[in-house]
Design a protein around this nucleic acid. Structure first.
Length: 125
DNA sequence: CGTGTGACCGGCG
DNA sequence: ACGCCGGCCACAC
C-alpha cells in the first residue's frame, strides 16, 4: 500500500486531534469496573502488540486526559502495578483498585488471570 | 529532519 | 527459576 496521504487530516476542514493516545484512552475507559487489563493487550487490540511500550507511555499522558482515564486498571503482563509510581501518590493506584474490590497484594493483583479483561476478546470488532 | 525516550513483552542463557 | 537483551512504534525537543 502507498504511504499515508498527509492530507488525510484535511477532511472538510474538520480538524480532530485523533492520535494513538486517544485510542488507548478509549480502550482503557471501556475496561469494566473491577477488571484489569495489560499494556500488551491494549497494544494488541490497537494492532501494535509489539509496541506495548507506547501504551504505557500513552498512560503517562493519561493523567491529564479528559475525561479521566482509569489508568489504575492497566498493569503489566505479570499483573504487577508497574505504573503505580507514576500516580499522584504511591498508594493511589492500589487504593483505587481496592475500592473496586480488586485484591492487591505485594504490588500485584491477586487472581489477575481471573480478573483479566482482554479488549480483543471482549470488544470483538 | 535526526535523536532520545518510554508505566512493555518475549526470548534466550 | 532468574536476569539480561533486543525490538518495536509514537511523540517531544
Amino acid at each position: 500500500m502507498h504511504k499515508k496521504a498527509p492530507a488525510d487530516a484535511d477532511k472538510s476542514g474538520l480538524k480532530k486531534e485523533y492520535s494513538f493516545f486517544e485510542d488507548v484512552y478509549d480502550v482503557v475507559r471501556k475496561v469494566p469496573k473491577g477488571r484489569v487489563t495489560s499494556y500488551g493487550a491494549i497494544a494488541n487490540y490497537l494492532g501494535t502488540k509489539l509496541s506495548a511500550r507506547m501504551v504505557g507511555w500513552a498512560m503517562n499522558a493519561a493523567q491529564s486526559a479528559r475525561p479521566k482515564v482509569p489508568a489504575h486498571r492497566v498493569v503489566n503482563r505479570n499483573g504487577m502495578l508497574s505504573g503505580k509510581a507514576h500516580f499522584a501518590t504511591p498508594t493511589l493506584m492500589e487504593d483505587l483498585l481496592k475500592k473496586e474490590k480488586v485484591i492487591v497484594k505485594d504490588d500485584k493483583i491477586v487472581e489477575f488471570k481471573n480478573l483479566f479483561w482482554d479488549p480483543v476478546k471482549e470488544l470483538t470488532f
